[in-house]
Design a protein around this nucleic acid. Structure first.
Lengths: 144, 144
DNA sequence: CTTGCTCCTCTAGTCGCTAGAGGAAGTAGG
DNA sequence: CCTACTTCCTCTAGCGACTAGAGGAGCAAG
């Protein structure tokens, strides 16, 4: 129950790399754990849970600052969850926009590679479309 | 025909910001233009075309190194366009992976916000799913 | 006791910009 | 011609979220 874990164990368990764990500690996302006599970090089960939470949230594309807020919410379960809900909703909107933008982009790239004459650059559709924004369907921009 | 443009003109024409143009020069994506007596950059029409090419390619999500290669290809229209085709194809694959990953993520986020009880954090679906990767449908990872 | 792994701290680099300081040059109006 | 304003110049530092490497210490197995 009160097992302790080295930073390497924690990395293996959580899937977060060792330097990244230290980085999370540095920016205050993960509390500094106690140290062994030799000065090594000694994590407990709670730290592993927190790391897993962070990792999962990062996988889902949440920014560090959003995760910081979510972790604070998690630490106080009596709070109303409106804030967490808002963060998730916000992120959902971002993700939807990103999908729309990438889908338009995919169409453009498909047009490019399908139109490629496999000849010389002078007649290459890829280069041509890149050179001439007018020939492009994309237009509906947004970060990819 | 042989109009000259200040860096500000170039920025307005191309939609690339002034410091970004200087940055592109610094990293060798845009050739250093001649200068006026007063030491200001004096661009020509060809530079504007190059900038538009870069901007469009960036909008489409190509990395700087890919654009560097594409520009070299464009500079020599006699070359076979296989390389340009390969870059576009590669990028298409990346984009498709990203779309797939984001689509899975969207489903996950929708599940989160729909399941939110709008009560307290203790019963919040958002927090719960983030804390427990097992409760997650996502799994098929990849960078968002 | 030595080999080899993991751990420690620290600094610097990645990518593609963006922001700001501090100063010179160009332009429009009086 | 003088002033005010804008644009330009160079330079350095910062962003987010890590990643890489140097140089050294601890620790477990053979």
């Amino acid at each position: 129950m009160t097992d302790i874990f080295t930073i390497g164990d924690a990395a293996r368990e959580s899937g977060v790399k060792v330097p990244t764990i230290r980085y999370y500690e540095e920016i205050g996302l993960l509390p500094p754990p106690p140290r062994t006599e030799g000065g090594r970090r000694a994590y407990g089960a709670e730290d592993l849970r927190r790391l897993a939470f962070i990792r999962h949230a990062r996988e889902l594309g949440f920014e560090i600052e959003a995760i910081r807020t979510l972790l604070q919410l998690q630490d106080d379960p009596a709070q109303p969850c409106a804030a967490a809900d808002a963060i998730a909703r916000d992120h959902l909107v971002t993700v939807e926009r990103r999908i729309a933008s990438l889908t338009a982009l995919r169409a453009e790239l498909q047009r490019m590679v399908e139109g490629c004459s496999h000849g010389h650059v002078a007649t290459c559709r890829v280069i041509e479309i890149l050179a001439d924004h007018g020939a492009c369907v994309h237009h509906a921009g947004g970060r990819a």
